[in-house]
């Protein structure tokens, strides 16, 4: 839990977290929300009793900046998932295997000032990854981290234990970087805690700071913010994106509370096919009533979600250049 955040005991039941929760929107079932979990925990519920609720969370993080009591709601979920994993290690066996594989791999270091950590989807698309790297200066100035830490991101989301050895192996090459551009929202949040001396930015923020991307964004675009990184630093980023929106005139996937509405396409429950949120329904809700000619996404996972519900072009930030 981050400094200044409080535990579930502080929940007053105000329900503000529900307003931004995609699981609530899909189910209208308070048991599956941060409010429901916190109140149940206050009444003595165990992680096992709340397993369905814990598994349902998409970890978009929108509830956290919405909470007036500053409860660490993301840490609450990852902590509860870790507790479930301790009780039933088989839940995270595949994640452990993935981390063991990474321990066996050989990764080269880099002397570049900027280190790019793509998320799993971007890492799997070498052409697009190359474009992203060029956006930040190309060879010599930026290097794509050979160890992208996607297994660690998955472990964070699943509540699997990350061994000190694996974490150290992941972090050592990153400590020399001055600037770290991170594609995975879960990692953005965690890396800020692990590497406080390194300037860590989400891919979306870093890209929209470049003239190449800003010049190609249009007022008729619907710009889709990746929610996890945004909500991890919402107090600061709400101002950044508001200024961007004003400068460009485009619309964004923000609700009235200025929280980023997620499609939830990239979350673990969706990957496992067990999500209570219909990704297409979320995409439709984001588009409802909005006028736009093109959708620009920060997260590659969102492309499929939007192309399924609109005929308008859907592109990733890197495809703008």
């Amino acid at each position: 839990m981050a400094a200044g955040q409080r535990g579930y005991e502080a929940c007053t039941g105000c329900s503000l977290c529900l307003l931004a929760c995609p699981v609530w929107r899909a189910t209208r079932d308070i048991r599956l929300t941060p409010h429901g979990r916190a109140r149940a925990l206050q009444c003595g519920a165990t992680a096992d009793e709340l397993a369905a609720s814990i598994d349902a969370c998409t970890l978009c993080g929108a509830c956290e900046p919405a909470c007036p009591q500053d409860i660490g709601l993301v840490a609450m979920i990852t902590g509860l998932r870790a507790e479930l994993a301790r009780h039933a290690p088989a839940r995270v066996a595949s994640v452990r295997d993935r981390m063991n594989d990474r321990m066996a791999a050989r990764f080269a270091g880099s002397a570049a000032e900027i280190r790019l950590l793509p998320d799993r989807a971007l890492a799997a698309d070498p052409v697009l990854l190359g474009r992203v790297a060029r956006l930040f200066g190309g060879d010599g100035k930026v290097s794509v981290a050979a160890d992208d830490g996607s297994d660690i991101a998955l472990a964070l989301e699943a509540g699997a234990e990350i061994s000190e050895a694996r974490l150290e192996r992941f972090l050592v090459p990153l400590r020399g970087a001055r600037r770290l551009i991170v594609g995975d929202g879960m990692l953005v949040r965690a890396l800020r805690g692990w590497l406080p001396a390194v300037r860590i930015e989400s891919l979306g923020v870093a890209a929209t700071c470049t003239a190449a991307v800003r010049d190609r964004l249009r007022a008729s675009d619907l710009y889709v913010i990746e929610p996890r990184a945004y909500h991890a630093d919402q107090e600061r980023l709400v101002k950044y994106y508001d200024a961007l929106r004003l400068a460009l005139g485009c619309s964004m996937n923000l609700d009235l509370q200025r929280l980023a509405i997620p499609t939830t396409a990239g979350c673990l429950p969706a990957a496992l096919g067990r999500s209570s949120v219909d990704v297409r329904d979320q995409a439709r809700w984001i588009l409802e009533g909005r006028e736009f000619a093109r959708i620009v996404v920060e997260d590659l996972n969102d492309i499929a979600a939007y192309t399924a519900v609109t005929d308008k072009p859907v592109v990733h930030l890197a495809q703008l250049i």
Partner: peptide, 17 residues
């Protein structure tokens, strides 16, 4: 009908507390 005590406890009080 939800009867599990901890889940019923979600509704144990109101905003007044």
């Amino acid at each position: 009908v939800v009867e599990q005590p901890s889940l019923r406890g979600t509704f144990a009080t109101d905003a007044g507390g």
